[in-house]
Amino acid sequence: MDPHAPPDAAADVPPAVRRRGAELEAALLDAAWDELTERGYGGFTYEGVAARAHTSRPVLYRRWPDRWRLAIEAIRHQGQKNPVVAPDTGNVRDDLIAFLLEASHKRKEFAALFSTIMAGYFGETGETVGELRERVLERTGPSAYGEIVDRALVRGELDPARLTPRVRSVVPDLMRNEILLTGRALTLDEVVSIVDEVFLPLAAARPSPPK
Score class of each variant (00 low, 15 high):
G156R: 02
A74M: 08
K108G: 02
D94I: 00
E38S: 14
L36D: 03
L101V: 08
E134Q: 13
A27Y: 01
P207W: 10
T182P: 01
T37A: 01
A185K: 10
P6C: 07
L96R: 07
P83M: 05
T140I: 00
V17G: 05
D189E: 14
E23T: 13
A71I: 07
L36Y: 05
E157S: 01
E138Y: 00
V195D: 04
V149E: 09
A119G: 00
G123A: 06
E138C: 00
L188V: 13
D189L: 07
A50Y: 10
R18Q: 15
D2R: 00
G79N: 03
P201N: 01
V92K: 02
P142L: 00
A111H: 04
P15R: 15
S104T: 14
R168K: 15
L186Y: 03
L158A: 02
V154S: 08
L24R: 10
A26W: 06
H54I: 00
E190N: 04
P6V: 10
A103I: 00
A71K: 12
I97N: 08
G141K: 00
L158P: 01
A10W: 06
T116N: 05
A16K: 13
R162K: 14
D173Y: 09
K108L: 06
T125N: 11
P3R: 08
A71G: 14
A50K: 08
G120M: 02
P83E: 12
H4V: 14
D8I: 07
V167P: 12
P83Q: 12
R135K: 10
R63Y: 04
A32F: 11
S143P: 01
N91C: 12
I75V: 15
R52P: 07
K81P: 04
T37Q: 01
I148M: 06
E25V: 13
P160C: 07
